[in-house]
Design a protein around this nucleic acid. Sequence first.
DNA 1: TTAGGTGCAAACGTTTTGCAACTTG
DNA 2: CAAGTTGCAAAACGTTTGCACCTAA
Lengths: 154, 154
Amino acid sequence: MGATAEHDVEQLRARLNDYMAKHGLRSTEQRRLVTEMFFATSEHLSIEDLLDRVRIEEPKIGYATVYRTLKLLKECGLAFERHFGDGVSRYEVAWQDEHHDHLICIECEKIIEFEDDAIEELQHNVASGLGFKLVRHKLELYGVCADCQAKAQD
Amino acid sequence: MGATAEHDVEQLRARLNDYMAKHGLRSTEQRRLVTEMFFATSEHLSIEDLLDRVRIEEPKIGYATVYRTLKLLKECGLAFERHFGDGVSRYEVAWQDEHHDHLICIECEKIIEFEDDAIEELQHNVASGLGFKLVRHKLELYGVCADCQAKAQD
DNA sequence: TTAGGTGCAAACGTTTTGCAACTTG
DNA sequence: CAAGTTGCAAAACGTTTGCACCTAA
C-alpha cells in the first residue's frame, strides 16, 4: 500500500551498463525496453507477464529475447528468480539496499513482502553452528490472510 | 550421522489407507511398492531416483505411475515436494512429528536438515503481525559448508 | 566491418494426459 | 461387473537453442 521507497533506478541502469561494457555486450532497443519495463515494476513477474507488457510498446518482441534479457539481469545480480510452487519462474528487481522474504496467502495467492532482522540473525547462528558460511537464504511463509480468514467465517 | 529417529512407517500406511478408503481409491501392487520404497528412504528423491529403485523390484513400472503415486502422497499430506533450483521436483517423506528446514552448500550441493524453534516462533510472530494465520513455511539457507571452506583455502 | 542480438521455430526436459487393457473390491 | 489403475506414447508445459538475418559500435 502506498509510497514504495524511492528506489534508485538510475543506479540499476549504471550497474547494468557497467556489466555490459565489461563483457562486450550491447545496448539494444529491445534490451532497453525490457529492462526499463522490468525496473518499473514492483511485482513478481513471470516471463509471460513481462512479455505482455513489453509487447504493448513493441509487439514484435519474442519470448526468447525476454528470457535472454532476464538471464542477463540475473547474471549481473539485478534480478532474482523466484519459484512459488506453480511451475513458473517469477522475477523481481534486486534493489541493492533491500532484502525481504515472502508471506503468501494460500487462499487468494496474495504475496506480502517482509523483513525481519531477528530471524536473519538466528539464521546466521544456525548456519555457523553447523559450520556453514551463510551466503543467502530463502524464506517463504504460507498462511491465510486476514481477508480470507474473514471470508471463511461465513 | 547415525541413528535416524525411529519413524513410524506404520502410521503412514494407516493414514494412506484411510485416505484411500475415504476416496474410493484402490491399493494396487504398484502403489504399495512405490509408497513402501518411498517411505523407506530418508533422502530427497526425484521421480527418476525413485523410479530407478522401484524398477529393481518391478522393472515394468512406468514413469506415470510414480508421478501419480507421489501426487497422491502429496494430496494426503504424506509427501512434500521440494524445488532446489534445478528444474527437478524432489520428494520427501512427511513424518508427522517432524519439521525441518534445509541448509544447502552452494559448492558441493550437500543438504543438511535442521530445526530451530526460535526461528519458527519468530515466523509466527511476523505472520500474525501481518494478519496471517501461518500454515506452513519453507526456509532454505544457502552457504558454503566447512569442508568446502577448507578446500577453498588452498 | 564484425561481434553480438533478434525473432522464429524447433528442440529440450520434466510433468501430465488420453486411451485401451487390466485389476481390485 | 463397475470403477479405479496401469503402461505406453503422445501432448503439454516452461525454457533453451540453432540459425539466418539484422544492428550497434
